[in-house]
Structure formats: structure tokens, C-alpha cells
């Protein structure tokens, strides 16, 4: 476990907590894509099935349970408790455009043709594109609340730190998980445009709005 990995996990957790706090305190999930949150819940569910079969460490188990809990709570907030505030009109990304290719690819390109491995691979591929409905929603409405941009920033930071973690692990442990690395690079690229807007607008105290 290296410092990039720990900081990456902390950023990931922070992103999820920021999102939950935003919804909780404003009693509203306006501007949040429920579809992205459903995809993230699906990502964690299919990836963490190994909670039942394989013990790695206390840290690993506890974090997985926290991630699952945060993710399902967020989905419940959007489609249950605060569904009146959910902007379903603008959350119009077609999920089948992501789910069909991701499912196909996870059957074609995996480490082992076993149900658990295919589901793990599915979760890795799906995570790399799961934020697209959220980014699509922002580009459609042309703006995002500042707190939503903080959420996206920490999510992107988590991805970037994981890249550093993999470089570190490659040099120190000769560890190289090709599926995770390639998907991780793709996923991080999706955040680049957003990072630019975050630094040039949000950090200077302006609201993120697109021309």
C-alpha cells in the first residue's frame, strides 16, 4: 500500500461524502445525474462480490462496505427521499449505449472466463464510462453547482492518484494490471476537460457555466 493509493481511496471517499452532504444539506439532488449514480452502484456491486469469496485485508473489506453503503444511499436519495427535486428531464443519457459495449467487451477481454472475473472486468470497464451521464447533463444544462464540481474534482483526483499508484507499483512490485490500467487511463481522460474548467473558473470563485 503506497501513499498514492491511500490518497486515491481517501479522495474517492471524500467525493462520495461531498455528494451525499450536498444532497442532505440542500435537501435536493438538482443537477445530479441519477443514471451515473446507478452505474456507480452497479460498478461497486459487481466488483465487490469477492467480499463473499476472498478476504484481502480489514482495510479492503471495510472500505468496500463503506463504498457500497454510500453509493446505495445516494441512489436512494435521488430516486427515493428527494425524487421531487431530481431533474430527470436533463438526465437523458441513453444507458444502453454504455451497457451494451461494456458487457460485450467484458466477455471478450478478461483475465479468466469465470462469472466473478467477468463481473469484475465489467465493473472496471463500466467505471471508466460511468461519469458520462453526469458530464452529459452538465453540458446539456450548461452549468453545475459549485459543490457538484467539487464532487467531480475529487472523483477525478482519485483517478489521477490511481495512475500514480500503478506507476509506483509497476516499479516497486512489478505489478501490472492491464485491464485496470487501460480503463483507468481512459477514465482519467474524461476528466481532463472538466479539470481545465475547474481550475480556470471554480477555483477563481466563478460558477461553472458553459458558453
Amino acid at each position: 500500500m503506497n501513499v498514492f493509493r491511500i490518497l486515491g481511496d481517501v479522495s474517492h471517499l471524500l467525493a462520495m461524502i461531498i455528494l451525499l452532504l450536498k444532497i442532505w444539506r440542500s435537501k435536493s439532488c438538482a443537477g445530479i445525474s441519477g443514471k451515473s449514480q446507478i452505474l456507480f452502484a452497479l460498478v461497486f456491486t459487481t466488483r465487490y462480490l469477492d467480499l463473499l469469496t476472498n478476504f484481502i485485508s480489514i482495510y479492503n473489506t471495510v472500505m468496500k462496505i463503506i463504498f457500497l453503503a454510500c453509493s446505495y444511499t445516494t441512489v436512494y436519495m435521488i430516486y427515493g427521499k428527494y425524487r421531487n427535486t431530481f431533474d430527470s428531464e436533463n438526465d437523458s443519457f441513453r444507458l444502453e449505449f454504455l451497457l451494451v459495449p461494456v458487457t460485450g467487451l467484458s466477455f471478450l477481454e478478461n483475465y479468466n472466463f469465470t462469472p466473478l472475473e467477468i463481473l469484475w472486468t465489467f465493473s472496471i470497464y463500466l467505471e471508466s464510462v460511468a461519469i458520462l451521464p453526469q458530464l452529459f447533463m452538465i453540458s446539456k444544462t450548461g452549468e453545475a453547482e459549485t459543490i457538484t464540481t467539487h464532487y467531480l474534482f475529487f472523483l477525478g483526483l482519485y483517478r489521477t492518484l490511481y495512475l500514480a499508484n500503478w506507476i509506483w507499483r509497476y516499479h516497486t512490485e512489478s505489478f501490472y494490471d492491464q485491464i485496470a490500467v487501460v480503463s483507468g487511463v481512459v477514465q482519467t481522460i474524461f476528466y481532463c476537460d472538466f479539470f481545465y474548467l475547474y481550475v480556470t473558473k471554480v477555483l477563481k470563485g466563478k460558477k461553472l457555466s458553459l458558453p
Binding site: 469477492d50 476472498n54 484481502i56 463504498f67 483475465y111 499508484n165 505489478f175 494490471d177
Partner: peptide
């Protein structure tokens, strides 16, 4: 190659 002992990352 295949990661040993399952996947240890989150």
C-alpha cells in the same frame, strides 16, 4: 498476466 490472489484494489 493475471493478478494473483484476486484483486486488492478498490
Amino acid at each position: 498476466q493475471e493478478p494473483k490472489e484476486g484483486h486488492d484494489e478498490l
